[in-house]
Computed example of a mutant assay.
Amino acid sequence: MKKMSLIELLDKYSREELADLIGCHLTLINHVVQKKRKVYIEMDDAGKITKCYEIKSFPNRKLSESKKVKSSSCN
């Protein structure tokens, strides 16, 4: 089983081919590339895609200063 990023697979396949392999729309592939999202694909030994997932940082949004102060005072 191999784990590769979606960007690495674009070296082997065109965006249209990759969208067909994954089973998604071409606009999703374009969005991932444009926003530089961390999407990984797991493939079996035959080269068939078994799983796709995205890794996001936590928290995935910026906290305001008031929420930071409020959460730190609760500890």
Rank of each mutant, 00 (worst) to 15 (best):
K2S: 12
M4W: 03
M4G: 00
M4E: 04
S5F: 01
L6H: 02
I7W: 00
L9V: 05
L9I: 04
L10Y: 02
D11A: 13
K12D: 05
K12R: 10
K12E: 08
K12V: 06
Y13F: 15
Y13M: 06
R15E: 14
R15V: 10
R15I: 11
E16A: 09
L18K: 03
L18M: 09
L21Y: 04
I22V: 10
I22Q: 01
G23R: 03
H25W: 04
H25G: 13
T27S: 15
T27M: 09
T27W: 01
L28D: 05
L28K: 08
I29D: 02
I29N: 03
I29K: 03
H31S: 15
H31T: 12
V32H: 07
V33F: 10
K36T: 06
R37C: 04
R37H: 07
R37G: 02
K38Y: 12
V39F: 03
V39Y: 04
V39K: 01
E42R: 05
E42Q: 06
M43A: 06
D44V: 07
G47M: 06
G47P: 00
I49L: 05
T50C: 07
K51I: 04
Y53F: 15
Y53G: 05
E54I: 06
I55P: 00
K56T: 10
K56N: 09
S57A: 15
F58I: 13
N60I: 08
K62N: 06
K62E: 14
S64L: 10
K67H: 13
K67M: 14
K67I: 12
V69H: 11
K70Y: 15
K70W: 13
S71C: 08
C74N: 13
N75S: 14
N75K: 07
